[in-house]
């Protein structure tokens, strides 16, 4: 029961982008170790601007 809730919570965070920064840090650690990662606020700013560049909503 508890583990089901955990999966649901993880899905919800993933779907909403709540964990976007954590995923970014993981990606950064894996691929760009030589550079310092963006701060959470700076990353979020960029992430949100990029997300809305293009057709994202339909009728």
């Amino acid at each position: 029961m508890f583990s089901k809730f955990k999966i649901f919570w993880r899905m919800l965070r993933r779907l909403s982008g709540d964990d976007a920064y954590e995923r970014y840090l993981r990606h950064h650690a894996a691929h760009h170790q030589d550079e310092t990662p963006l701060s959470k606020a700076a990353f979020f700013k960029q992430w949100q601007d990029e997300k809305w560049n293009g057709i994202k909503r339909c009728c």
Partner: peptide, 23 residues
Amino acid sequence: NGRDFVPTNKWIVFGHHFAAIAG
């Protein structure tokens, strides 16, 4: 690239896709 191109769990993709198409 960890940003717009990200391999994602299929249920998450389904959620994003459905939220985008259903207006």
